[in-house]
Design a protein around this nucleic acid. Structure first.
Length: 500
RNA sequence: GCGCCUGUAGCACAACGGCUAGUGCAUCGGCCUUCCAAGUCGAUGAUUACGGGUUCGAUUCCCGUCAGGCGCUCCA
């Protein structure tokens, strides 16, 4: 039986993985804090991703960009212009739907645009039932001026009948822009407005030339980044699954047109297998291809890697074919040349981009959920997180069987100190041995080492396995080697073809 | 954003409009025990989410806010 989200939320709070943000002030919606064990788990997720994407390969460089960037970055990317289709609400039946779904839809869009001279001008565009964001989209031009933002939308005429209840009480269409805005400098005027990045991807596009040049790269190569992004979501949901502030692991892989489809397949498979490699159960993963109408404005093709969450299938990671959309857009906006000159064919190429983009928070949550097990041991419930050792916040706990015997405690602390040089290790003597084991099980610690009275004579300790609860007597001097063999922090790659 | 439901100790829950808001687990300490949440004694911990109202009296009824869950809607 699948674990409920409530159970996970309770465990997360009780054992220091995840807390509600600003809890003593009543909480901050859709924001969460990671506690002592949560930060370890997150760090493990990032490390495993970085290892697979950067360290183990030779064709990807790392990068860390600032969160605040020049506002033109987001004009070029299309994020300022708008992010969603205009929506209307029915005041009568409370339904919400896309404006262009209203019978006889026609609306006047007030748009701001910038001329080549840098001046901003406003003008109006009237559109019928075609999807407005497919027409007024990044790069849209009017009398030589380039679209900056849709400032306002108003229905034209009066045919605004609700398709659900038939009443005529619809609100004006509203755009929901997902960009958080803030200001540079103490004065909040329009000129100082900057945006909190909604994705880390753009930082890699605008640094394409910097990375290529400084690292003397030729196509194909990739740029990888892990960092926080911010989206002012209309609806947030399901614990850390969708939050306003979240952490992304993204990689932009630049390749020659013509090789793009092969790379696309490569990355879909590679990323799907990454989850298997760290122990996510195959039956809880699936691949789903986006239909044409759900593709983002920049995307030609997209596969989601989905996980079977307690609340249903949800996206863990998207692998998108972004074509040359982004580099082209930045060339237009910045006036800089971002093409790659191919010495063989003597031609300038605008690379195609394949982008695997994953969420750190969702991935961490997934590891918790997938690892959660309840079982009965001697008539008592045992909760155990069967986390992959690479993901476990703590790798080993050292426990004295008798805390009253000074020699035992001493040996335990010496062993803990030695193990800490290599792994995240803890010492605990605040309960009876059975309880100490259960505590470690609940947070997924793979091994416990127990020193008892006999250890003082034979120099051996008991190593206990989290999953099987089996015990081995091991000489104290050999414990580090014993654990090193079993704490496989860099498991072998999996090669299951998920996509043809 | 809308609708429904919920909010009491770290967690899970109880308390008819009426006594000092209880119980289990957890946590901390003592005794005992010493390899799988044992026993026992004790302790800490709650302006009942926050703010207002009705009432002699509110955890309980009403309103607002905040937060969470579920369902719509939406989802680069």
């Amino acid at each position: 039986m699948a674990v409920s989200l409530d159970t996970i939320i309770s465990l997360c709070k009780r054992r220091g993985f995840i807390f509600q943000s600003s809890e003593i002030y009543g909480g901050m919606a859709a924001c969460y804090d990671y506690g002592p064990l949560g930060v370890e788990l997150k760090r493990n997720v990032r490390d495993a991703w970085w290892r697979a994407m950067v360290q183990e390969r030779g064709d990807i460089e790392g990068l860390e960009c600032s969160i605040l960037m020049h506002p033109d970055v987001w004009r070029a990317s299309g994020h300022v212009e708008n992010f969603t289709d205009p929506l209307v609400d029915c005041k009568s039946c409370r339904a919400r739907f896309r404006a262009d779904h209203v019978e006889g839809y026609e609306a006047v869009y007030t748009v701001t645009a910038r001329t080549d001279g840098g001046a901003t001008e406003r003008f109006e565009v009237t559109l019928g039932p075609q999807i407005p964001t497919k027409v007024i989209r990044p790069g849209y031009r009017h009398n030589g001026a380039v679209l900056e933002e849709i400032a306002e939308i108003k229905f034209k005429g009066s045919p605004r009948t609700c398709p659900t209840c038939g009443n005529r009480e619809l609100t004006e269409p509203r755009l929901f822009n997902l960009l958080f805005r803030t200001h540079v400098g103490p004065i909040e005027d329009a000129a100082s407005t900057v945006f909190m990045r909604p994705e880390t991807a753009q930082g890699m596009f605008v640094n394409f030339e910097n990375v290529r040049g400084s690292m003397r790269r030729k196509l194909p190569f990739g740029i990888a980044q892990i960092g926080r992004s911010f989206r002012n979501e209309i609806t947030t949901k399901a614990f850390v699954f969708r939050t306003l502030e979240f952490e992304q692991m993204e990689m932009e892989f630049f390749c020659k047109p013509g090789t793009d489809e092969e790379w696309y397949r490569h990355w879909v498979n590679e990323r799907f297998n990454w989850y298997l490699r760290y122990g996510i159960r195959r039956e809880n993963l699936r691949l789903r291809q986006h239909d044409a109408d759900e593709l983002a404005h920049y995307s030609r093709m997209c596969h989601d890697i989905e996980y079977n969450f307690p609340m249903g299938w949800g996206e863990l990671e998207g692998v998108a074919h972004r074509g040359d959309y982004d580099l082209t857009a930045h060339m237009k906006q910045s006036g800089k040349n971002l093409k790659f000159f191919d010495e063989e064919t003597k031609e300038a190429i605008t690379p195609y981009v394949i982008e695997p983009a994953a969420g750190v928070d969702r991935t961490a949550l997934t590891f918790m959920i997938d690892a959660y097990h309840e079982e009965e041991v001697r008539g008592e419930k045992r909760v155990v997180l069967r986390l992959h050792p690479a993901m476990a916040p703590l790798k080993v706990a050292v426990l004295p069987l008798l805390k009253k015997r000074g020699e035992i405690v001493e040996k335990c602390q010496a062993l803990t100190a030695a193990l800490k040089q290599r792994w995240r290790a803890v010492y605990d003597d605040t309960a009876a041995i059975g309880k100490l084991y259960r505590r470690q099980d609940e947070v997924g610690t793979p091994f416990c080492v127990t020193i008892d009275v006999e250890s003082l004579d034979d120099g051996k300790a008991t190593v206990r396995d989290r999953d099987t609860m089996e015990q081995d007597r091991i000489e104290l001097g050999r414990i580090e080697d014993y654990l090193a063999e079993r704490l496989v922090l860099n498991p072998p790659k999996v090669a299951e073809p998920a996509l043809g």
